[in-house]
């Protein structure tokens, strides 16, 4: 009996010893290292980025970034201001094209197609990769027209009845229908900030995109409106792939499965949200998570 116990104790001891020695011998990552730590690949990739560089004139805003974004996954980009997370987000549907001095090199493939291909038209790309902006920006038109605009220009509805159905469904998905169903002809700009942002989300999903990019969608909203949007993101993630840029680490922790940490133009660390927040590998990530800077 004693012998057995002794064996167990020994086994426990040796296991503990192994774990400790592993932890101790795991190579400590150099603070100055800018190589991405963690698993950048995905088992079911939708978006594949390889060696992406983004320049504003002479200034390099994104350095050699490689990342895969999985199907129906919510991935959040975190990092201090000016770290390039919004810039990278906007390369995914080529919104950076509107900035004259902006140049992108490397490869971004969505469903195997390079979106920076010379022949590719941005119109179908942006219809497939929708975007919600930091500041709610409804058109100064009626609530109905705000949502109906996308389906109208893309010809997604054959007649008025279908269009009505799309508008209703999109507003329902965005959790706004009950609040606005009686005043669809009111100006979209007359809604409250949170409602405006949900209207913008409704407008985005009315086009039925595959991927939704969200650029700090809650930064201009109060906590209650933020909670609603976060709940909405959770619901939407069943149907869409969502990439969200956020300044709030709590938000990243709440809504996303994966998290990517950016630092001054470099993707420092990617991993499961839980791992990133409980066990960051890179010292910079750890500093940011623990609030030492950022």
């Amino acid at each position: 009996m004693n012998y057995v116990k002794d064996l167990e104790t020994k086994a426990n001891y040796s296991m503990t010893k192994k774990i400790i020695s592993d932890a101790l011998s795991a190579p400590e990552i150099d603070r100055e290292s800018r190589t991405t730590v963690g698993k950048i690949t995905s088992d079911d990739p939708r978006v594949v980025c390889k060696n992406v560089n983004v320049y504003y004139g002479e200034n390099r805003a994104i350095n050699d970034l490689s990342l895969e974004i999985g199907n129906h996954e919510v991935i959040s980009f975190i990092g201090p201001s000016g770290c390039g997370k919004s810039t990278f987000l906007r390369t995914l549907n080529r919104m950076n094209d509107t900035i004259v001095s902006c140049r992108v090199s490397g490869e971004i493939k969505i469903d195997g197609k390079n979106i920076y291909d010379r022949d590719l038209d941005v119109v179908p790309l942006r219809a497939m990769v929708g975007m919600v902006f930091q500041k709610p920006n409804p058109f100064p038109k009626s609530i109905y027209d705000n949502v109906a605009y996308g389906p109208r220009i893309h010809g997604l509805a054959a007649d008025k009845r279908e269009l009505d159905a799309i508008v209703e469904e999109s507003l329902k998905k965005a959790g706004l229908w009950d609040e606005v169903k009686d005043r669809l002809n009111d100006l979209g700009t007359g809604l409250s900030g949170g409602q405006q942002q949900r209207l913008c989300i409704a407008r985005t999903i009315a086009v039925n995109p595959e991927i939704i990019l969200m650029d700090e969608p809650c930064s201009a909203l109060d906590p209650i409106a933020t909670a609603k949007i976060e709940q909405l993101i959770a619901e939407l993630s069943e149907r869409f792939t969502i990439v969200i840029v956020t300044h709030s680490m709590q938000q990243a922790a709440r809504v996303s499965q994966r998290t990517a940490y950016f630092h001054i133009g470099h993707l420092i660390e990617v991993g499961r949200t839980n791992d990133i927040f409980t066990n960051p590998k890179h010292p910079l990530t750890e500093d940011y998570i623990t609030g030492r800077f950022g």
């Binding site: 919104m95 941005v122 119109v123 920006n137 100064p140 605009y149 893309h154 407008r203």
Partner: peptide
């Protein structure tokens, strides 16, 4: 005209001409 309006239209896939004439 605030750039956010242009971004909103471009973001849902409006072409440049549609953005300009519609918004």
């Amino acid at each position: 005209v605030p750039p956010s309006i242009r971004e909103a239209a471009l973001g849902i896939g409006a072409s440049k001409l549609q953005t300009i004439f519609d918004h």
